[in-house]
Amino acid sequence: MTELSDELLVAYVDGQLARKQTRAVEKVFDQDDIIAARVEALKQAHNRLEAAFEAILAGEEMDVSAVSVPVQESSLSERSILKVALAGVGIAVALGLAAVGYGWPLSFPGLNSGTQGVMLPVQTAPLSTDWQEEAARAHALLSRASVEVGVESQSNPDFVAFQLSQILGTNLKIPNLEPQGFRFVRAQALRSGGAPLTQILYLGATGAPLALYAKKGEGSGTLTEKHYGEIGTVAWAEDGVAYLLAGEAEDSLLMRIATKIKLEPAPPLRSAPKAQTPVNGALDR
C-alpha cells in the first residue's frame, strides 16, 4: 500500500492541488483500494457538509422571504419584529458600505422611522400593456428547437431530460413537483439572446401554469424574488445553469418550490435513452 497523508487527500478532495499533483494522486488511488476508499470517505464527508450548510441557508432564505411578505401589525411576534429590524439594519449597512466603497449617492429613507416601515422589498418591473409587443417578445423566444422537440416524446421524462440537456449543452434539473401540487405537462426549447433557453411547464389543480426556465450561465446562488406585473419569479444559479421559476402562485409558495429545487442533488450525467428496437427489447427481457 502506498502511504498518502490525509493532508494530501483532503487537499485533493477540496480541489486545492495543482493539475500535476492531482494526476499523481489519481494514479495512486486507481491502483490502491485502501486509498480509493479513504478518498471516497473524505469526498462523502465534504459533500454532506456542503449539503448541511446549504440546508441552513435555505432556512435563512425562507425566514428573510417571510419577512418580506406584509403581515398584520397585531400578528407580529417579538422575533418577527427583531428580524424586520435586522433586515433593515442589514440593508442599511450593505448600502452604507457600498456608498463608502463605491461612492454611490444614497440616502436611507425610513432608517430612523422605527421597525414598522422597514421591509425587504420585492422588486417589481412593469409589464407591457400592448399585446402586439408582448406577442412579438414571446415570439422572439421561439427557435427551431421549440418545434423540433416532438410532442409524442413528452410522455417520457428521461427522453425530455436528455433532449433538453443536449440542447442546453449541460445537465439541468427537471424536478418532480407533484408533492407540491404541480404535475409536469410538457417542456420545450426556446432561445434568448441567441442562446438556448429551456422551459418546463407544470399545472396545479387550478390557475395558470408554473414554469421553470433554465439557461446555461453563471450567477448568484442566492434565491432572488422579483415581480413582473402579476407574474412572480425566483431566480438563482447553480452548477453553471441559471434557473428562473415563474408563476402566479403566492410568493411564499414560489420560494418554497424554488428552495426544494435548489436543494435537490445535481442530476447524473445523462446518456441517450435506449431506442426501442426488437434487439433491445429482447435484451431487456
Binding site: 441557508l57 425566514d63 442566492t222
Partner: peptide
Amino acid sequence: MLPRLMRFADV
C-alpha cells in the same frame, strides 16, 4: 447577503 450573514451568526 442577509441570509448568509444570518447563517454565519447562527452557526
